[in-house]
Structures are given as C-alpha cells and as structure tokens.
C-alpha cells in the first residue's frame, strides 16, 4: 500500500484504467466462451428431434453412417426433402428448408457434441458393441433442441471402457489417440 501511495496521481490513474481494462477484457472473454458453448441452441432451423422421433423415425434413418464408420453423419438436404416435399409444407421452418433446397445450399448446422482434435471416436465400434445412442447422447428423442447431455471427457469414456470384458484392450491410448 505504501508503494501505491507513493505513486503520482497520473500513475494512479493509468493503473486504475489498466485494472478496469483488464477486468473488461476478462468479462468479454468469458462472454465469448459462454456464447460458443451455447451456440448449439442457435441452429439455422428450429429442427426438433422430438417431433421426428414421435413419428417413429429411427436415429439411423438420418444418421446413416453410425453403424458403418467413425462418423454418424448429418442428413443431406435431399434426405430432408425426401419427406418434406409433401409433409408439413406450410410450416415456416419447412419453407426455410425449401429455401436451402432451392438455392442448393447445405444447411449450416452447428455442431452439438464437440471432441478435441486429438481424440478419434468411432461410432460403428460402439454400435457393434451394443451401446445405445442414449448412453452418450441422452434422450435426444425427447429434445426439441439437441443439447449435449454428458460431458464427453476422457473420464466418461474410460468409466465405461473399464467395465468391459476386453478392458485391457480398451484401456490402450491408441484406441482414441493417434
């Protein structure tokens, strides 16, 4: 405090501005982080998993890659239009979809579940092992807006891998990291 008292008025002013500036920067950074993590809420279309699941559509009908390879995949606009040329055509959201179709643009969906770049997840291995979609993705069939349910960190993966019969093989770093 003595050191602070020895500062001139001008130096104190500069120090004050610097502290306020740093605080403002921190708040701004926090706001950006929050905005990014909640980006999943703002999809280009108000797509509802719930509506589709209630009408008896299975996950694999749209996420076709899930049993075949690493990536589950997002359906093409063509796939959406396969039904929506006839179904609910008067809804404003479906008209938005038709707009993408007519402009021949892909829908810029925002990613919901994010993995770091050094993690390699394979959907097909998990489907083949009988892991249900809900174990990681939660009750998507009841969500109007898809949201991440579990925090998909390493602990979450290993908790399940440790319970398996071939846990030694599933405990290997190369299973996920390459």
């Amino acid at each position: 405090m003595r050191r602070l008292a020895s500062l001139s008025l001008r130096q104190r002013l500069i120090l004050g501005v610097a502290v306020v500036g740093a605080g403002a920067l921190l708040v701004a950074l926090l706001a950006i982080v929050i905005a990014q993590t909640s980006a999943a809420d703002e999809q280009p279309l108000a797509f509802s998993h719930k509506t589709h699941a209630q009408n008896g559509i299975q996950c694999q009908f749209c996420h076709t890659g899930v049993a075949k390879g690493p990536v589950a995949g997002i359906p093409s606009v063509e796939k959406c239009m396969g039904c929506h040329t006839y179904i609910a055509t008067d809804s404003p959201e479906i008209q938005k979809l038709q707009g993408y179709w007519e402009r021949q643009e892909p829908i810029p969906w925002k990613r919901v579940n994010i993995q770091p770049s050094y993690v390699y997840f394979n959907h097909s291995s998990h489907v083949a092992a009988g892991v249900s979609c809900g174990s990681c993705h939660g009750a998507v069939a009841e969500m109007t807006v898809a949201k991440p349910v579990v925090e998909m960190n390493m602990g979450f993966c290993l908790d399940c891998h440790a319970e398996q019969e071939n846990k030694d093989a599933l405990w290997d770093c190369t299973v996920c990291h390459r």
Binding site: Y118, D172, C173, T174
Partner: peptide
C-alpha cells in the same frame, strides 16, 4: 512415450 500392450508399439501420446 509409452508402450502399447495391445499393439506392441511405442506410442507417443501428443496431448
């Protein structure tokens, strides 16, 4: 830098 028991390789875990 660790030894993969499953693949019997030296693995470098970058992260």
């Amino acid at each position: 830098s660790y030894h993969s028991v499953e693949e019997n390789l030296n693995v470098q875990v970058y992260n």
